[in-house]
Amino acid sequence: MLSIERSAYFVPDTRFVVQTDLARFNINAAQAKVFTKIYGLNQIPYAKDISVTDLIEKSVSKLFVDGTVRKQDIKFIIHAHTAKVITRFGQSVIREVKSRLGLLSATAFGTSLNNCASTLNAFEMAAMLLTCQDKTAKAIIVTGEMAFTPTVQVIPNTSITGDAAAAVVVSLNDHNNKLLALEINTYGKYSRGIWLSEEESKDFEKRYVPLLGETINKVVEKTGLSLSDIKMILPHNVNLISWAKLAKHIDYPLANIYLENISKYGHCFGADILINFTDVQSRQLLNKGDYYLMVTVGLGATFAAAVFKY
């Protein structure tokens, strides 16, 4: 059973402010007010004078700070990202990170299969790959990229994305943060993502909460638990209003959905759920034996949820 052993993230200190940096986001003051007052977005991190490779390296390197994770035990590095192209053609960001950090025993590759939901796809991949390794084997799942154009940065009527990277070490032999069940559902009729027609976009917005609620209920049912057994939901930070609607739809306490980072970081692609996990751990908001969910959605459209036991 796959477990999370360590986690870390890096968010740049530099920020755009939604209400004032209108030109950056190509929005007007009225749109900015919607993003801040209704969606809960305030500051958006951006990486100044560093590359996407640097961004990812900074998060992965934190996993080795105290020496408890041995580099020779890392057999796989899986980079989950949203944009299909995140650097210049011919360059492999994750192989460069592997080389810089001396992770010589690892096979490194990337996946953008389900956009922002690719992070949970990577957990599934890691579990399968590690079954063929010895007991000491571990994998790193890292997600990180930059919002390098307005098209990538602003999701109309939904969210604004920021620059960040987050990473976890996973193995099959730890006893904490065990992955109990995973549910990934893809709805191809929305495959055009941000290029959906107006009619298609309205249909997606209408079905978003019911489809997400269905995915959550399915993954909880797989474990034999009920929603009342789930101590906390660690969400993607798309906006506040969608999670308020979801909480009402599934009759789950909004206070138990960790939403504190939406105003600070915006939506940092697939890194959101790992950033939230790291913060919840550091704040000791979960106790031994608690059940929690990681929940994310990738445009295209993929709804994904996973149940873990702390």
Rank of each mutant, 00 (worst) to 15 (best):
residue 10 F to S: 02
residue 16 F to S: 13
residue 19 Q to D: 15
residue 20 T to D: 13
residue 21 D to R: 05
residue 22 L to N: 00
residue 24 R to H: 08
residue 31 Q to Y: 04
residue 37 K to G: 01
residue 50 I to G: 09
residue 51 S to Y: 11
residue 53 T to K: 09
residue 54 D to K: 01
residue 64 F to D: 06
residue 65 V to D: 09
residue 66 D to M: 02
residue 70 R to A: 15
residue 74 I to V: 14
residue 75 K to A: 10
residue 79 H to L: 04
residue 82 T to V: 02
residue 86 I to P: 05
residue 88 R to K: 15
residue 89 F to E: 14
residue 90 G to N: 00
residue 91 Q to A: 12
residue 94 I to M: 07
residue 97 V to C: 07
residue 97 V to N: 03
residue 101 L to K: 07
residue 111 T to M: 10
residue 117 A to S: 14
residue 120 L to C: 06
residue 124 E to P: 05
residue 125 M to Y: 15
residue 128 M to I: 13
residue 139 A to D: 09
residue 139 A to W: 07
residue 140 I to M: 09
residue 141 I to N: 00
residue 144 G to S: 06
residue 144 G to N: 05
residue 145 E to W: 05
residue 148 F to A: 00
residue 148 F to Y: 11
residue 156 P to S: 00
residue 161 T to I: 08
residue 161 T to K: 13
residue 163 D to V: 14
residue 163 D to L: 11
residue 167 A to G: 07
residue 172 L to R: 15
residue 173 N to Q: 11
residue 174 D to G: 15
residue 178 K to L: 14
residue 178 K to C: 12
residue 181 A to T: 12
residue 185 N to H: 12
residue 186 T to S: 14
residue 194 I to R: 14
residue 197 S to F: 03
residue 203 D to K: 13
residue 213 G to F: 09
residue 216 I to F: 08
residue 217 N to Y: 01
residue 218 K to Q: 15
residue 220 V to A: 10
residue 222 K to D: 04
residue 224 G to A: 01
residue 225 L to R: 03
residue 225 L to C: 02
residue 228 S to K: 13
residue 233 I to Y: 09
residue 235 P to V: 11
residue 236 H to D: 05
residue 239 N to K: 05
residue 244 A to G: 14
residue 249 H to E: 13
residue 251 D to M: 01
residue 254 L to Q: 15
residue 255 A to V: 06
residue 256 N to M: 05
residue 257 I to R: 03
residue 259 L to S: 05
residue 269 F to G: 02
residue 274 L to E: 03
residue 279 D to P: 03
residue 281 Q to V: 00
residue 283 R to G: 00
residue 287 N to Y: 12
residue 290 D to G: 03
residue 292 Y to P: 03
residue 294 M to E: 07
residue 295 V to P: 07
residue 296 T to S: 15
residue 297 V to L: 02
residue 299 L to R: 11
residue 302 T to V: 13
residue 303 F to E: 13
residue 310 Y to H: 08
